[in-house]
């Protein structure tokens, strides 16, 4: 077993455990902190897959911006273990069982998609900033500009929604 396989196993188990802790921890603050760790490990997976640009963007956008937003909201609304609502035990069991059944269905559906020993031809440089930038600014210029309009509308929308209503 090579070194990269060991790294993959460590990262994958870390990802899965942190994702499970996000769902099962009682305190919302702990959920947010576990989710930050989970996003860092996903960035590690991106580095393993030779997608360096996306790994850096993932850390900046998810672990930086989005999780700070979540943390601020959880602290602003003063959510903690005492105010946390819980579903009845039966519904919790039903949730876990349906999640597991969905996992089985997805596995069975993907079983025949690619041969299990399919291996990439060679390590390439497609994850570098140069390649991604070429794609993004040559072929996907219009979607890029539309994304900026989407950001503008999201910004205005969130300000309008979160503003205090005048009676």
């Amino acid at each position: 077993m090579g070194i990269s396989q060991i790294i993959f196993y460590l990262l994958a188990s870390f990802t899965i455990f942190t994702a499970l802790f996000v769902v099962f921890s009682k305190n919302p603050i702990y959920s947010v902190l576990w989710l930050i760790l989970c996003f860092f490990s996903v960035a590690g997976h991106f580095v393993m897959l030779n997608a360096q640009f996306l790994a850096v963007v993932h850390i900046i956008v998810y672990s930086g911006a989005i999780m700070v937003l979540f943390l601020f909201t959880v602290m602003l609304l003063n959510l903690n273990k005492e105010t946390e609502p819980h579903k009845p035990l039966l519904l919790k069991f039903a949730a876990v069982i349906s999640g597991g059944v969905l996992f089985l269905i997805i596995l069975a559906a993907m079983k025949t998609t690619i041969p299990s020993n399919y291996i990439a031809p060679k390590a390439s440089e497609i994850g570098y900033v140069k390649q991604i930038g070429m794609k993004l600014y040559r072929e996907y210029t219009l979607p890029f500009e539309v994304a900026s309009i989407l950001f503008l509308s999201a910004m205005i929308g969130s300000v309008v929604l979160a503003k205090k209503e005048r009676a």
Binding site: Q5, F8, I16, L20, V23, N50, F103, A120, K122, A123
Partner: peptide, 26 residues
């Protein structure tokens, strides 16, 4: 790290990401 992609089958990533998706659904 250069050729880590060559020693890991892609099925592992398929299984990992589908498991993450199911944890989200759960």
């Amino acid at each position: 790290m250069e050729n880590s992609i060559q020693s890991i089958p892609q099925n592992w990533y398929l299984i990992l990401s589908s498991f993450m998706f199911c944890i989200g659904i759960m």
